[in-house]
Amino acid sequence: MAVDTSYYLILSAAVFCTGLFGILTRRNALLFLMSVELMLNAANINLVAFSQYYGNLTGQVFALFTMALAAAEVAVGIGIILVLYRNFEDVDVAEAATMRW
């Protein structure tokens, strides 16, 4: 009755590899952040899929924690990127090669 778990695994792998693709090919720090969001979402899809597969709620609770951590990570990441943009006039991750101290 439900969709096969392996289909969700393939979907999750596709989203994860898309995020990895973005990190490997782009140099914009904001796109890095978005790609990391995609990868975290892929992990969450996996957790929920196996939660349903085993009929065990641990996966769903853990996915909730992942979401909270992702939100915190984005808040700090965007702060860092804004500082990066102010100091280097750019958000290219290859440009920021020096630190102050």
Binding site: A2, D4, T5, S6, L9, I10, A13, A14, F16, C17, L20, A49, Q52, Y53, Y54, G55, L57
Partner: peptide, 20 residues
């Protein structure tokens, strides 16, 4: 990496999900 993962997942012996 996706190709490898997809091959593994298609061949994985997963049964029907239990569900809630």
């Amino acid at each position: 990496l996706f190709v490898i993962m997809a091959v593994v997942f298609v061949g994985a012996p997963l049964g029907d999900p239990v569900g809630f």
